[in-house]
Write a protein that binds this DNA or RNA. Structure first.
Lengths: 205, 205
DNA sequence: GTCTATAATTCGATAGAC
DNA sequence: GTCTATCGAATTATAGAC
């Protein structure tokens, strides 16, 4: 079912404003202005602010299921796989850092019911990244490509190291301003460092 | 200069409500009710919402300078120091996880001017944790207790690994509920894992 | 479907009595 | 200093014309 142009314009504007201001800080008028439509139309198409907010969260969530893991990565050795995963994961998180922070905030304020979001979304990739990584790890251990690792702890290590830079970025930038070029080079350094640290930890010899 | 009881009650209540709801979501009436005072008194003592909010941020920030590093840790080997630091850091973050998330959110929404906060606060411990860790690392390298590491990357690794559990907790709890006892044991597992990973990476033999 | 006008409500802030 | 009462602005939501 294809959405009308106006409807889509409103959703796009709503995503932008809600992510920038949060649910409580966002104003219906500002969303209407940003979408270039009459404020009344927001209510015509989406009833009220709560309904529009839910629509926004669903849209953002759907985008977060775009996986960093592709079929083509199946043939890689685990060492190669890990390197490619980290590279793609950093890029993926960098492009969605604001969405992640927004969701994290609204989830912890209980403005978002995770179960409703998750059950309602058809993850087009079937398994989630956690499951795929678990399988790949178990496989590499069986093939003796890596030592026996605790899967949960390893994935927590990996996610921690990948995500922190983006989470702390607003603070870092508030203290020591950093332009996009500097951020890009910091990201590249982190990719190398995270791979080095984790691979050294799990490689066999 | 000692604050009156009423004034302090208002600040305590304001910290609670602002952290729970965010600046935009917090209501002056709710703060007054929580403090058990008439709403008008908030304006009498703090003029307006912005001023009260700034007071709250200053209070929270002051609490964040309580260092996890004590004098007594100076005599430890670096291996012992790292272990103790991680242990104390996890406990410290666990007690302040909501405050951290609140500040992170408001800073990125530009509701908080970091320079105003930092310059206005007398850090009673002189150096910040980043500086202390840098010094300690340089010292350990000079004494050949650990290999030559890139100080910035090592500290980013450490902070990433320490903080992520608490940042992601609202999501984890939203999907798979976890009571305080389970959280406590997860924290203990993470302390061990983070120390193991980092120490293996930097030890010499 | 889209607009103008406005109702209804919430909320921060203030006036003024005590 | 503290309270009651209330103002006025901001904001969501709706009524009704076109």
């Amino acid at each position: 079912m294809k959405k009308k142009q106006v409807e889509q314009d409103i959703i796009n504007a709503a995503v932008k404003i809600f992510v920038a201001k949060g649910k409580d800080g966002a104003r219906m008028q500002e969303i209407a202005d940003s979408a270039g439509v009459n404020k009344m139309l927001l209510h015509y198409y989406f009833k009220d602010k709560d309904t529009l907010f839910l629509e926004v969260v669903k849209n953002i969530n759907a985008d977060l299921y775009g996986s960093v893991i592709e079929e083509s990565m199946n043939t890689l050795t685990f060492q190669e796989f890990l390197s490619v995963f980290i590279d793609r994961h950093f890029n993926y998180l960098n492009e969605r850092k604001d969405s992640f922070q927004f969701l994290l905030w609204e989830i912890s304020r209980k403005q978002v019911d995770l179960h409703e979001i998750i059950s309602g979304s058809n993850n087009p990739y079937g398994k989630n990244p956690f499951e795929i990584l678990s399988d790949r790890l178990a496989d590499a251990i069986a093939k003796e490509e890596i030592r026996e690792v605790d899967t949960t702890e390893f994935i927590l290590d990996l996610f921690s190291l990948d995500r922190f830079l983006f989470i702390g970025l607003p603070v870092i930038r508030g203290i020591a301003p950093m332009d996009d070029a500097e951020l890009a080079s910091a990201i590249e350094r982190r990719k190398k460092e995270v791979f080095r640290l984790l691979w050294n930890d799990i490689k066999i010899n």
